[in-house]
Design a protein around this nucleic acid. Structure first.
Ligand SMILES: [Mn+2]
Ligand SMILES: [Mn+2]
Ligand SMILES: [Zn+2]
Ligand SMILES: [Zn+2]
Lengths: 139, 139
DNA sequence: TCAATAGTTTAGAACAATTATAATGTAGAA
DNA sequence: TTCTACATTATAATTGTTCTAAACTATTGA
């Protein structure tokens, strides 16, 4: 819910040049109250719906990766032939409906904190992600 | 820890023809006390170490997929350019060391049961998987 | 003001995992 | 033994992603 000059500030302050491509992608990703999940292909389609000036596929990949590195996006681990990203960077988990290939947020308050009672020497925990696979309840 | 005739019985009883390729792959996957994780490429290498008669890549893919469908293998959801499979089909979770690209079992007794206090209408839960990403503890 | 420069975008090629194809082979039944 | 459905195979096709190198541009500071 920011305007373009605020995206420019945000990009600049994180050390990314505010090019028109990046600002446009910010608009598509962040100019809404609702967060959402997307694949690169879906993002490309969204961009072309909103703008008539197309952004090359390589730039979309580059931008998504740099936004992920800056922490503005998360990547969701699932068994899929393509990568899923999430504009919701807060701690939360997911339902995955394999038949519809549909990802749904599980609010963090709806999951009891996951307790891991073991560790790996010399390693520290970076993230804990729960994936709940669901299927049609044909009963 | 079965011998070949037992793999033949197992395959036959699950409706899969016990071809020599499938029996060989059973040997490589299941003829050990320890379970393990693997990618298709790693499996192909294991096979060629154990046998001098090579199995085509397409057959390895076909067999792994049919074993997964029969429940003899699980696929682990991870952000990776290749699929990871698990000969441990019991309920358990994983550490993933992204720097080493290394998957490690977390024994089910080392994770408090994950409680999900929400559901999706018309869908039932098929699996709940926890992925704990770790990194070097440079401190 | 404007050239220098470092970073960015781009089209297209390259790459790698996976899946499809279609011809050949074979396990199991009759 | 013969038949048939299923399985294997080499190879091609597909597809998501990354690489490349040339053109472009935001920013700096002379
Ligand atoms: Mn893939
Ligand atoms: Mn991929
Ligand atoms: Zn989410
Ligand atoms: Zn495992």
């Amino acid at each position: 819910m920011l305007n373009n000059s605020q995206y420019i500030d945000k990009l600049r302050s994180s050390g990314l040049r505010p090019t028109k491509q990046r600002v446009k992608i910010c608009e598509v990703l962040f100019n809404t109250d609702k967060t959402f999940h997307f694949t690169i292909n879906e993002l490309v389609k969204k961009i072309s719906k909103v703008s008539n000036h197309k952004i090359s596929l390589a730039t979309v990949y580059n931008t998504v990766h740099s936004f992920k590195k800056k922490g503005y996006l998360k990547e969701i681990p699932i068994n899929s032939d393509q990568s899923y990203f999430d504009t919701n960077t807060s701690h939360h988990h997911h339902f995955y409906d394999e038949s519809q290939k549909n990802l749904i947020d599980i609010d963090d308050s709806d999951v009891e904190p996951v307790k891991i009672n073991t560790k790996i020497p010399g390693k520290k925990i970076k993230s804990v992600e729960v994936l709940v696979k669901v299927e049609d309840d044909k009963s």
